[in-house]
Computed example of a mutant assay.
Amino acid sequence: MSNQIFFDFGNSRVKAWLCRHGEVLSRFNIPHQMAMEELIPALPADFKKAVDFIGVASVLDDDSNNAFARVAFMTWAVSPQWANSQKEFAGVYNGYADPRLLGVDRWVNVIAVSDRPCCCVVSCGTALAIDFVADRRHCGGFILPGYTMQLNALIHGTKRVRPDEGKTIELAPGVSTTEAVHRGIVIGLVGAVEKAISDFEKAEGRACSLVLTGGEAGKLGPHLSVSHDIIPELLLVGLQRYFGCAMST
């Protein structure tokens, strides 16, 4: 293979890497609010050159995925290959009773961190997904509304809670509605992550490393008492591994 493109279609953003022999040549990251026919013109020029392979992880519906497959073939004359959740991949085992029901985004993130002996991977996006991996086995996880979804729920579900756009820089009790809302959401998410890790470490009898990814990771990271790594494009790392295109390290 020479050039490859890897796409991560999330609920609210689309990210992509243009790679050659595992090396990332160019990156693309925008809010996902456009029709698939509008996506290709929005790509940087480097992405529109000839490629040999297109790998995709998508949580979108079938209509959107089929539309992308059509425009991708029209643009590159290459049919995209789709990542899917499965019972086992390269010695990594899915913890779901029905492996197909584990979101492909979570599964690919699990693959990305599977070399760590015991790891919690937290995807901070539209939803906050907490997944545990121990000895290359997915051990289950939790899903709860993410930062923006919780904020929107408060705005649309109440009559008088109308916070301004806020920047959470501390978690002291808020002395305005804006502070109380933004800090309250963050402290709830931080508490969920730390409680989940604490309980898992007790069950495993060992320490668990923590990896944050996703667009909202920067809101949580500064307030966690647990040491952690932030890898914003972790899913694309896992997608390279899934399709066997990662560089040997």
Results as ranks from 00 to 15, higher is better:
residue 103 G to I: 04
residue 6 F to L: 15
residue 221 G to F: 03
residue 180 A to Y: 00
residue 146 G to P: 02
residue 142 F to N: 13
residue 154 L to C: 05
residue 169 I to R: 10
residue 35 A to S: 14
residue 104 V to A: 09
residue 181 V to D: 00
residue 186 V to G: 05
residue 94 N to D: 13
residue 85 S to T: 08
residue 159 K to G: 10
residue 216 E to N: 15
residue 243 F to R: 09
residue 153 A to N: 07
residue 182 H to K: 07
residue 88 E to I: 06
residue 249 T to C: 11
residue 87 K to F: 01
residue 15 K to Y: 01
residue 176 S to A: 01
residue 51 V to D: 09
residue 129 A to H: 10
residue 167 K to W: 03
residue 242 Y to D: 02
residue 183 R to T: 01
residue 157 G to K: 12
residue 85 S to A: 12
residue 50 A to S: 12
residue 95 G to C: 13
residue 220 L to M: 12
residue 238 G to N: 08
residue 232 P to S: 06
residue 5 I to Y: 05
residue 138 H to T: 04
residue 28 F to Q: 05
residue 190 V to I: 14
residue 157 G to L: 14
residue 209 S to P: 05
residue 247 M to K: 15
residue 134 A to C: 12
residue 79 S to T: 04
residue 168 T to S: 02
residue 98 D to L: 08
residue 85 S to Y: 00
residue 1 M to Y: 03
residue 171 L to I: 00
residue 8 D to Q: 08
residue 133 V to W: 03
residue 28 F to M: 06
residue 207 A to H: 09
residue 45 A to P: 03
residue 80 P to T: 11
residue 10 G to E: 06
residue 222 P to G: 02
residue 223 H to M: 08
residue 22 G to P: 01
residue 115 D to K: 08
residue 86 Q to W: 06
residue 185 I to E: 10
residue 168 T to Q: 04
residue 206 R to A: 06
residue 58 S to V: 03
residue 140 G to C: 13
residue 11 N to T: 01
residue 29 N to A: 13
residue 101 L to S: 10
residue 56 V to E: 06
residue 150 Q to P: 01
residue 168 T to D: 03
residue 186 V to C: 07
residue 140 G to D: 06
residue 5 I to K: 08
residue 126 T to A: 11
residue 125 G to K: 14
residue 114 S to R: 15
residue 32 H to Q: 13
residue 17 W to R: 08
residue 208 C to I: 13
residue 225 S to D: 08
residue 89 F to Y: 12
residue 192 A to N: 08
residue 28 F to V: 00
residue 124 C to Q: 10
residue 187 I to E: 06
residue 134 A to W: 10
residue 171 L to E: 02
residue 203 A to R: 13
residue 104 V to N: 11
residue 125 G to Y: 02
residue 101 L to Y: 10
residue 236 L to G: 07
residue 194 E to H: 10
residue 181 V to M: 04
residue 58 S to Y: 09
residue 120 C to M: 15
residue 14 V to F: 12
residue 247 M to P: 02
residue 185 I to A: 12
